[in-house]
Amino acid sequence: MLTDAILAFLHFLAIFVLITLMAAEAVALRPDLTPATVRRLSLYDLFYFLSAALALATGLLRLFYGAKGADFYLHNPWFHAKMGVFVLIALCSLPPTFAIARWRKQARRLPDYVPPPSEIKAARRWVMIESHLVILLPLCAVMMARGIGAR
């Protein structure tokens, strides 16, 4: 029972950090981006990736070592929906991640580098899509946790 509680806490913590970093990226990705913000975005994106990896890892640990057991989750369509949404969000995070990596490389060569407004707008659009999709995760989680739709 303690293991399940600790895993749940770590899972929720990773998710809250992930959402905070997603919001930070959305706020930072503005037309008035400064060179310092480009560097800060790199850190946000790195920690975003790490928090997503931790959320996935703790989720998998809950699946196999949590109180409900893998059988509870694997036969629940909401579990599969939640995993699908998570993968979709991960795929949506790739374009801004690649853009931020390009910007970081440019900023190393040119200290005053600021990406063009069109690239900033495109990266922000992807982050906003992610932020709208993330709303579906708690819906899937509560339906799954209550066994709705399970066989």
Score class of each variant (00 low, 15 high):
residue 122 A to R: 12
residue 93 S to W: 03
residue 127 V to C: 04
residue 21 L to R: 08
residue 136 L to N: 09
residue 48 Y to V: 07
residue 65 Y to T: 07
residue 77 P to S: 13
residue 66 G to R: 01
residue 55 A to T: 11
residue 42 S to A: 15
residue 84 G to S: 08
residue 25 E to F: 02
residue 138 P to K: 09
residue 12 F to H: 14
residue 71 D to S: 15
residue 13 L to I: 12
residue 130 E to L: 08
residue 109 R to D: 11
residue 26 A to Q: 06
residue 23 A to N: 03
residue 141 A to L: 06
residue 128 M to E: 10
residue 43 L to T: 11
residue 131 S to E: 11
residue 23 A to D: 01
residue 8 A to Y: 02
residue 127 V to L: 04
residue 50 L to M: 11
residue 28 A to K: 04
residue 92 C to R: 12
residue 100 I to E: 08
residue 108 R to Y: 03
residue 46 L to E: 03
residue 3 T to C: 03
residue 15 I to G: 10
residue 136 L to Y: 08
residue 111 P to R: 05
residue 23 A to F: 05
residue 47 F to W: 11
residue 148 I to K: 15
residue 137 L to Q: 09
residue 88 L to A: 15
residue 69 G to M: 07
residue 65 Y to W: 09
residue 108 R to F: 02
residue 145 A to N: 13
residue 136 L to R: 06
residue 45 D to W: 00
residue 41 L to V: 02
residue 5 A to C: 10
residue 68 K to V: 02
residue 48 Y to C: 09
residue 54 L to C: 15
residue 49 F to G: 09
residue 84 G to V: 10
residue 6 I to L: 15
residue 32 D to G: 06
residue 78 W to E: 00
residue 107 A to S: 15
residue 145 A to G: 10
residue 93 S to N: 06
residue 7 L to E: 04
residue 66 G to P: 01
residue 88 L to F: 14
residue 144 M to E: 13
residue 96 P to E: 11
residue 9 F to W: 06
residue 42 S to M: 10
residue 25 E to D: 13
residue 60 L to C: 02
residue 105 K to V: 04
residue 33 L to T: 06
residue 20 T to P: 00
residue 78 W to V: 00
residue 70 A to H: 06
residue 136 L to K: 06
residue 92 C to I: 11
residue 47 F to E: 05
residue 34 T to D: 06
residue 130 E to W: 05
residue 131 S to C: 07
residue 129 I to A: 13
residue 57 A to H: 05
residue 151 R to P: 14
residue 62 R to N: 10
residue 30 R to E: 13
residue 27 V to Q: 13
residue 54 L to F: 12
residue 108 R to H: 08
residue 131 S to M: 13
residue 27 V to L: 15
residue 34 T to N: 04
residue 79 F to L: 03
residue 50 L to T: 12
residue 78 W to S: 03
residue 129 I to G: 08
residue 52 A to N: 01
residue 67 A to E: 14
residue 52 A to G: 03
residue 39 R to H: 10
residue 59 G to I: 03
residue 46 L to H: 00
residue 138 P to D: 12
residue 106 Q to D: 08
residue 114 V to L: 01
residue 59 G to R: 01
residue 8 A to W: 01
residue 119 E to T: 02
residue 12 F to N: 12
residue 111 P to T: 08
residue 113 Y to N: 07
residue 43 L to P: 00
residue 123 A to N: 03
residue 88 L to T: 15
